[in-house]
Simulated scan of single mutants.
Amino acid sequence: MTDTLISLLSILIGIIGANSTGLFFKKYSFGLIGNTIAGVFGSVFFIKSIGRLGFSPQDIMQTGSVDTYLFALNSLVSFCGGLAAVIVLSKLAAKFNKSDKFN
């Protein structure tokens, strides 16, 4: 695997996390396309910000082969990033929609 492939897999796992959140928690769902977009941005944000602790795609491939523990940690953070993005965006949308009723 290469760094690019690991990055793409991380984004895919974030998309899965966001869409599964929308599937199991209907009140947080933005539909398939909205959850997919939230999953992409959530996983990228989490991996870029938290991945500096040592489980970025470059760190996973540093030895020339895949470090499975770092890849599992990267996958978990990507999944949580997609999940968190859907929930945060849902709360933000509810807050904005609530303020529109008074205008």
Score class of each variant (00 low, 15 high):
residue 12 L to R: 09
residue 43 S to R: 02
residue 32 L to V: 15
residue 36 T to K: 02
residue 30 F to T: 12
residue 21 T to N: 04
residue 26 K to E: 11
residue 46 F to K: 13
residue 47 I to Q: 11
residue 59 D to A: 14
residue 16 I to R: 04
residue 29 S to N: 14
residue 52 R to G: 15
residue 23 L to F: 15
residue 22 G to F: 00
residue 52 R to N: 15
residue 44 V to K: 01
residue 42 G to W: 01
residue 39 G to K: 06
residue 28 Y to S: 01
residue 39 G to W: 04
residue 32 L to C: 10
residue 19 N to R: 07
residue 27 K to V: 06
residue 45 F to M: 12
residue 56 S to G: 09
residue 35 N to I: 00
residue 53 L to G: 15
residue 37 I to R: 11
residue 21 T to M: 07
residue 22 G to P: 04
residue 48 K to N: 12
residue 48 K to G: 12
residue 54 G to S: 08
residue 12 L to N: 09
residue 26 K to D: 15
residue 27 K to D: 10
residue 15 I to F: 06
residue 55 F to R: 01
residue 39 G to Q: 04
residue 29 S to L: 04
residue 34 G to P: 05
residue 15 I to E: 10
residue 24 F to P: 11
residue 34 G to T: 00
residue 61 M to Q: 14
residue 52 R to L: 15
residue 35 N to F: 02
residue 29 S to F: 12
residue 28 Y to N: 05
residue 50 I to K: 05
residue 44 V to H: 04
residue 17 G to R: 01
residue 22 G to A: 09
residue 59 D to T: 13
residue 24 F to T: 14
residue 18 A to Q: 04
residue 19 N to A: 03
residue 28 Y to T: 00
residue 48 K to L: 12
residue 46 F to D: 06
residue 23 L to W: 14
residue 32 L to E: 15
residue 37 I to S: 13
residue 12 L to Q: 12
residue 23 L to H: 15
residue 53 L to D: 08
residue 44 V to E: 00
residue 11 I to D: 10
residue 38 A to N: 12
residue 36 T to Q: 00
residue 49 S to G: 06
residue 57 P to R: 06
residue 29 S to M: 09
residue 31 G to E: 08
residue 37 I to G: 11
residue 61 M to G: 07
residue 36 T to F: 04
residue 52 R to A: 14
residue 47 I to N: 10
residue 54 G to L: 02
residue 35 N to M: 07
residue 14 G to L: 02
residue 58 Q to T: 14
residue 54 G to E: 03
residue 28 Y to G: 09
residue 26 K to H: 13
residue 42 G to I: 07
residue 60 I to G: 02
residue 49 S to N: 11
residue 11 I to S: 10
residue 50 I to G: 00
residue 15 I to G: 08
residue 48 K to W: 14
residue 30 F to W: 01
residue 27 K to W: 13
residue 56 S to A: 13
residue 61 M to Y: 09
residue 56 S to Q: 03
residue 16 I to A: 12
residue 28 Y to L: 00
residue 25 F to H: 10
residue 61 M to N: 13
residue 21 T to C: 08
residue 24 F to A: 15
residue 34 G to A: 01
residue 57 P to M: 03
residue 23 L to P: 10
residue 43 S to M: 00
residue 52 R to C: 12
residue 22 G to N: 07
residue 48 K to E: 14
residue 39 G to L: 00
residue 47 I to V: 13
residue 61 M to K: 11
residue 34 G to I: 09
residue 20 S to Y: 13
residue 21 T to K: 03
residue 61 M to L: 08
residue 21 T to R: 05
residue 55 F to V: 10
residue 25 F to S: 13
residue 35 N to G: 03
residue 35 N to K: 05
residue 22 G to Q: 05
residue 32 L to I: 15
residue 12 L to W: 12
residue 55 F to G: 00
residue 58 Q to P: 01
